[in-house]
Design a protein around this nucleic acid. Structure first.
Lengths: 337, 337
DNA sequence: TTGTAGGCGTTATCAG
DNA sequence: CTGATAACGCCTACAA
């Protein structure tokens, strides 16, 4: 393994000089020495030992992508296709800026703290954080943190999110405009101050605005796995009192459609479905899914930029970015006016 | 940050003793000292500094999940939903064994080598490796490497893969048994010694065995993105000479079905489709997709076990695991006998 | 413009 | 049973 010392010896200078060149402190070194050193670095194939750097500088260039796993759930977050597009985007942007991505699932706050200290982690991405002990643990940290899709805020953190409320409102209003009044709301569990909660508020407000009564029994909360979503679709097939469904995730919508179809119902003729996210999958269902579009890769990129600005102490004007959503009209909603 | 030194001072022993206790070298330390040290470790919240460990021991507990990105492609691998389920499985099993997962995309072999030296990476997972310079670079490494879904082998590496040939054969034979003779083969580009190539061989052999002529013009190679797969489906809708399609990936099959349906064709009445992978999505298409099942989470787990066995010098009998596949019969293939 | 020296947290060697 | 001490590769005062 080639070290700074090797370079120094080969060139005939001290480690300090080599280090200075590596860090671009050019003012202090003669042009010829710089050239020679750079040449030798190439020739000998020197790459910095990040562990050593990390040890001495208490900065590691390691960024953690943390998934806080509720201990009752078995799968880890990366298994969700929507998340994975996001991680891909994170990895690329981080890499282009000289950082490294560690993916880590934690169950407890002490898991998290241990991980951070293990590696001197420089910064963190977290998704779906709520107002709980886990958030409290994050608050106590003094590294940049970017929260994704979370409705908790803290002076030390940045947030990247979506117009969730507007999304819920827009989807619902669209259904109402198409003549629907008996609209089911399907989602994973609605947790206060969460993404789904905001969409739910938008849903209710759109109903209220149009003087459409809200029926609590039209709210269906359940897991997002395939079996559960399909069986929800089958249940809905028996509900003659419901003409449309707003599902807060496309995978949920797709499952519902599948369940409906398996029960002999036609979408959108018998029942309309609208989704949220606009993942690729939307275009593969039949009928193609009308949904609320969000730009996941952009979200990833912005999240990284947020983090990097903080890491490099670039003054940041805003601590929050809310990405716009918009409706994508395809074929899963029927007008019944 | 609590260090070994802090513990040593608090207890009134030397660093060496603390280190010995941490590493379970109990024989050399008195029981009371051990208890006291462990207590203090808990109280002071000590966690090891992995950078320091890595520096001195030239082992880092860092495992890289490498994606070799063909430089012409823009997206990074994690964006594929099938891969992501796999990564989730990797992360969990690694973590349970005290390792850390770094996700990294590399474009060139020197990118790879730099990354490995940056972090003293202990081991590697790579997917879709072919017989090329990248493989040569891997060959020269002296860390454990587990190749996923690759048909290149090397005495220093382990392989985890699938019965791809059998999968191709089984799918095709199934179609033939259902009376199909004019079968299209749809896949990403068929590269020698690749997964798709094996499935292709299975396809051809099944045809030959049944004395069904192979038509090179029934082979469709293209990208897996949604637009392309849908447009392939639309193309196939115009082909009255084809009665069934074997797609080597479910996302491809789903896109084809979508394209067919958009062109007014009925699946499986007008044309039958069979997929490969059995991702969740299969159950969400309508009709539900008949496909070749593989167990991605298991694959991830086995891959990790392979790597850990090598890392801990557990003698390994076999260097290769081929996971079984089986046909899952749903509703996308029609019998036309 | 360049070099020397000390230390980051940990482990291993070797001596008590 | 326990403790000094050197070393891993790098960075940064400070000195020359």
């Amino acid at each position: 393994m080639t070290t700074i010392k090797d370079i120094a010896q080969a060139v005939g200078v001290s480690c300090t000089t080599v280090s200075n060149v590596i860090h671009g402190r050019a003012g202090r070194v003669s042009a010829e020495t710089i050239a020679l050193i750079n040449e030798t670095i190439d020739k000998l194939g020197y790459v910095p030992n990040m562990s050593a750097r990390s040890l001495v500088s208490s900065s590691s260039k390691v960024i953690g992508m943390i998934s806080h796993l509720a201990s009752n759930k078995k799968e880890s977050f990366v298994e969700d296709p929507f998340h994975s597009a996001f991680i891909g985007s994170l990895e690329r942007t981080l890499r282009e800026n000289g950082y490294y991505l560690m993916v880590r699932t934690v169950e407890t706050t002490s898991d998290l703290l241990a991980f951070l200290r293990n590696w001197n982690v420089d910064g963190l991405f977290c998704t779906g954080v709520f107002q709980d002990e886990f958030f409290d643990a994050l608050s106590g940290l003094n590294i940049p943190i970017v929260l994704i899709d979370s409705y908790v805020t803290h002076p030390n953190m940045c947030n990247v999110g979506l117009e969730d409320y507007k999304g819920g409102y827009t989807a619902t209003k669209y259904l109402i405009e198409k003549g629907h009044k008996n609209i089911a709301f399907a989602s994973p569990s609605i947790r206060e101050r969460g993404v789904v909660y905001e969409r739910f508020l938008g849903f209710k407000d759109a109903l209220a605005e149009a003087n459409v009564p809200f029926h609590p029994e039209f709210v269906f909360e359940q897991e997002l796995d395939v079996e559960t979503t399909i069986s929800l679709g089958k249940n809905l097939a028996n509900r003659t009192d419901i003409s449309a469904v707003f599902a807060t995730a496309d995978i949920l919508a797709a499952g519902i459609i599948s369940g409906l179809q398996q029960s002999g119902k036609k979408v959108p003729d018998d029942i309309s479905v609208i989704g949220f996210d606009d993942i690729n999958l939307c275009q593969l269902t039949f009928p193609q899914l009308t949904t609320i579009h969000q730009d996941a890769p952009l979200k990833g990129k912005l999240a990284v930029n947020f983090l990097i600005d903080q890491l490099e102490n670039t003054p940041i004007k805003e601590r929050e970015i809310i990405l716009p959503i918009h409706l994508v009209e395809r074929n899963s909603v029927k007008s019944i006016t």
